[in-house]
Computed example of a mutant assay.
Amino acid sequence: MAKHPIYTMSVAQVYPHYVNKAARKGRTKEEVDHIIRWLTGYTQDQLEALLEAGQDFETFFAEAPELNPMRRKITGVICGIRVENIEEPTMQEIRYLDKMIDELARGKALEKILRS
């Protein structure tokens, strides 16, 4: 079965959309970065280098230093699909990130988004 096109898409192509979505609701780039770092374990310098290098989503998640175990507490619907029911691991990681950015844009407190 062919891979979903998002796997080969550069994170840098989607990142500005994450930031813009958050900014439209008065949230910041720093909050978006914080969410990504929390989810993946990348440092800010690593994140910036990967964005500049054009890292694709599949590699971005496959090589993440430490996927946060608390991410499994992320539940809900994104793109009409419950994130906790997604069986393909890479797609689930991508949708976890999408869900967290949506929560940020909806005004949810960062502590709650990070399942603190």
Results as ranks from 00 to 15, higher is better:
37 R>L: 14
9 M>N: 04
37 R>H: 06
90 T>D: 01
13 Q>L: 12
57 F>M: 07
9 M>P: 03
21 K>N: 14
109 A>T: 06
116 S>N: 13
6 I>M: 15
86 I>W: 04
22 A>C: 04
110 L>I: 14
110 L>E: 09
17 H>L: 11
14 V>G: 07
36 I>C: 05
6 I>Y: 10
64 A>D: 08
60 F>T: 12
53 A>D: 06
90 T>F: 05
48 E>R: 04
105 A>L: 03
58 E>Y: 07
62 A>C: 12
45 D>Y: 00
28 T>H: 02
26 G>H: 12
75 T>Y: 01
116 S>I: 10
69 P>N: 09
114 L>R: 05
1 M>A: 14
42 Y>P: 15
36 I>H: 01
113 I>Q: 05
94 I>V: 07
4 H>L: 15
69 P>Q: 12
85 N>V: 03
52 E>A: 12
41 G>A: 09
41 G>D: 09
105 A>N: 00
28 T>S: 15
18 Y>R: 07
65 P>R: 10
114 L>C: 10
98 D>C: 11
10 S>Q: 14
30 E>N: 13
39 L>V: 08
41 G>R: 08
106 R>G: 04
48 E>D: 06
75 T>P: 03
19 V>D: 05
47 L>G: 10
79 C>I: 13
106 R>K: 13
11 V>D: 02
46 Q>N: 04
58 E>H: 04
42 Y>W: 14
84 E>V: 00
97 L>K: 01
77 V>M: 13
34 H>M: 14
56 D>T: 13
3 K>L: 12
35 I>N: 05
45 D>E: 09
42 Y>D: 14
68 N>Y: 10
53 A>V: 00
78 I>H: 02
110 L>S: 06
73 K>A: 00
10 S>A: 15
32 V>A: 07
29 K>G: 13
45 D>S: 06
90 T>E: 03
69 P>V: 10
16 P>C: 12
56 D>F: 08
112 K>M: 01
77 V>H: 06
37 R>Q: 14
30 E>G: 12
113 I>C: 09
100 M>T: 08
50 L>I: 04
28 T>R: 01
92 Q>T: 02
85 N>L: 02
72 R>F: 05
55 Q>K: 11
35 I>A: 04
5 P>H: 15
8 T>P: 05
55 Q>I: 14
8 T>V: 13
32 V>L: 11
43 T>Q: 06
8 T>S: 15
45 D>L: 02
113 I>V: 12
96 Y>A: 00
6 I>T: 13
59 T>L: 15
92 Q>C: 04
61 F>G: 01
51 L>I: 03
3 K>S: 14
95 R>E: 06
81 I>C: 07
64 A>E: 07
81 I>G: 03
82 R>H: 08
2 A>Y: 02
82 R>P: 09
74 I>Y: 02
86 I>G: 06
108 K>C: 05
2 A>H: 02
13 Q>E: 11
3 K>R: 11
72 R>N: 06
55 Q>R: 11
62 A>T: 11
60 F>S: 09
49 A>W: 05
98 D>F: 09
20 N>R: 10
13 Q>I: 08
34 H>L: 15
81 I>P: 03
28 T>F: 05
80 G>A: 00
29 K>Y: 12
51 L>G: 00
